[in-house]
Simulated scan of single mutants.
Amino acid sequence: MKIYIALALIAAGTVAVAHSGVKNPDVMNRMIGMSEMAKQMKTVGAMAKGETAFDADAVNAALATLSEEASYIPSLFEINATDPKSEALPVIWEEFDTFAGHAKHLEEITASLAGTVKSPGDLGPVMKEVGKACAACHSDYRKE
């Protein structure tokens, strides 16, 4: 579980730097969408690590937002736009159906988890499931 929390927090921490100097508006829109997802993961991750107080409503809202944002991923990547600041790999457009399937899986996982978190003990399994769904896409379609 710790690796998934660490990945989420690293992604969230690099978002602001990644946006500076982006010239392509399509790439910028993708980055904004991914930044919102990173923000939600940071909220959940901070509680899972005990850095912030547990708040079931905030976790469940974050999961609902993650699901909504995940539903936009395929449309954000429909255009094969590039920018030196982009972390998207070209294989996204070569394997777009698989890529979109990963996004759909993330959307479904987070939707199924939203509303289920009742106690701090629920955070570990949630982070594991969401982290696996994020990592499945990032490992193949994002520059490390």
Rank of each mutant, 00 (worst) to 15 (best):
Arg30Ala: 00
Ile32Cys: 05
Gly33Met: 05
Met34Trp: 00
Glu36Trp: 13
Glu36Phe: 03
Met37Tyr: 02
Ala38Asp: 02
Lys39Asp: 07
Lys42Leu: 13
Lys42Gly: 01
Lys42Met: 11
Thr43Tyr: 09
Gly45Thr: 13
Met47Pro: 08
Ala48Asn: 05
Glu51Thr: 14
Thr52Gly: 10
Ala56Arg: 06
Asp57Met: 09
Ala58Trp: 08
Ala61Thr: 08
Leu63Asn: 01
Leu63Lys: 05
Glu68Phe: 13
Ala70Phe: 09
Ser71Trp: 04
Ile73Asp: 00
Pro74Gln: 12
Ser75Arg: 04
Ser75Trp: 10
Leu76Gln: 10
Phe77Gly: 06
Asn80Val: 07
Ala81Thr: 05
Thr82Cys: 11
Asp83Ser: 14
Pro84Glu: 11
Ala88Asn: 02
Leu89His: 10
Leu89Phe: 10
Val91Ala: 12
Ile92Tyr: 12
Glu95Tyr: 13
Phe96Gln: 02
Thr98Gln: 10
His102Met: 08
His102Ser: 13
Leu106Gln: 12
Ile109Phe: 08
Ala111Pro: 01
Leu113Asn: 02
Thr116Arg: 14
Val117Ile: 14
Val117Arg: 01
Ser119Tyr: 08
Pro120Met: 07
Met127Lys: 00
Lys128Arg: 08
Lys128Met: 12
Glu129Asn: 07
Cys134Ala: 07
Cys137His: 03
Ser139Gly: 01
Asp140Glu: 13
Tyr141His: 04
Tyr141Leu: 11
